[in-house]
Design a protein around this nucleic acid. Structure first.
Lengths: 199, 199
DNA sequence: TAGCGTACTACACGCTTGTGTAGTCGCAAG
DNA sequence: CTTGCGACTACACAAGCGTGTAGTACGCTA
């Protein structure tokens, strides 16, 4: 399919694919090399080590994402959400969860964007820091839980139609209150008890 | 701390802890044995294999959770959310993401509970299946993204106070609409275009 | 006391992992 | 032609993995 690319680029793409699918530790150098149709030595020749390869993937994914979809992870930029962008996001989030500093930086940026977005609304949030963090984490979960999501929906969420279905549902979720104010107040009270009463 | 337990129980607890922290593949048998202060052979003697240990942990975690907090993962059962329950949930979700059938069964149960809850409300959802799935996944994300969450909030979410802070924020999120109906309609249209127009 | 099963340990095996090393091929410069 | 350099491969190495095996210590029953 993309065998007209440089070997270096093929390795990078294969690594992003397998890292995203199996995690950083789960994808071996030999697997990646085979996926890219090169020897494992060449991988080492180009990227120095597995860590080096991962760093290169992090940087590439972050650059591509910012180039392709601007400040990604916002709902208004849904139109550019091609499978490729999905894969890059999925890789970067996976890398983040496995302790990548680049990924952590991305997360921080998501928090900044979230705060900016919050300022444009007239929502009154008691704890904006926590609010934005929860929101960011929940958005990311749509990528990390891809397998479970596909299972629940009965078809692969990588397909645009299924993906759209999932996003429609998240719109339902964010455009109306799910619990009443009384229920919320009740839960809040229970939480206060929890936070104060227990050691 | 809990060295008065059976060796078998100590191994199980150590496995749940390390599996939750590092993932199934990331936690080695030797690490778990050392954490439980036994030899790695004893682990094999009691559980047969790493897979057997994992199965035992799955079953134990699921039983404990249903025993401790009823149908967990609902907002009204927040009071029983001790650090121990948190850890069990975190383990089970991690095991689920790494392909455990027990975990998948738990996820299915969450979907059933979600549908039942949805029936008690008077929400009109176009695609209940997707809606409930998204909701379930987002709830689970609060456990899977623990590290990022702690990072964003500046203190470990395992602490009850920080955990409560996070849940307060999620109450804010679910008790009011975050986007207006116009914004939602606009996004919906964009999604329809995406689902239909692209191959 | 003898016998036996269970909890438990020490140690070795084979495999896979990331990494290191030596060497081949092709091409551009002198 | 040959020299050099980067792309690329084949192969060996040490370490860590899950697993298998042999053996010890202890408590129960006859």
């Amino acid at each position: 399919m993309s065998s007209d690319l440089t070997a270096r680029a093929r390795i990078r793409d294969a690594a992003i694919k397998l890292f995203a699918e199996r995690g950083i530790d789960g994808a071996t150098i030999r697997d990646i090399a085979q996926e890219a149709d090169v020897s494992s030595g060449l991988l080492r020749h180009h990227f120095g080590s597995k860590e080096g390869l991962r760093d290169a993937c992090d940087e590439y994914a972050l650059n591509e994402l910012t180039k392709l979809s601007g400040q990604f992870s916002e709902f208004n930029t849904l139109d550019g959400l091609t499978p490729r962008v999905q894969q890059l996001q999925r890789y970067l989030i996976r890398s983040t969860m496995d302790g990548s500093p680049t990924g952590a930086a991305m997360f921080d940026r998501m928090l900044v964007f979230g705060n900016e977005w919050l300022a444009t609304t007239n929502l009154k949030i008691a704890d904006p820091e926590a609010f934005v963090a929860v929101l960011a984490v929940m958005k990311m979960s749509l990528f990390t839980m891809r397998d479970l999501m596909s299972r629940a929906l009965g078809s692969d969420v990588t397909e645009p139609a299924t993906w759209a279905r999932m996003l429609q549902a998240s719109l339902d979720l964010f455009s109306q209150p799910l619990i009443t104010e009384e229920q919320a107040a009740q839960a809040r009270a229970a939480l206060d008890r929890l936070a104060a009463g227990e050691e």
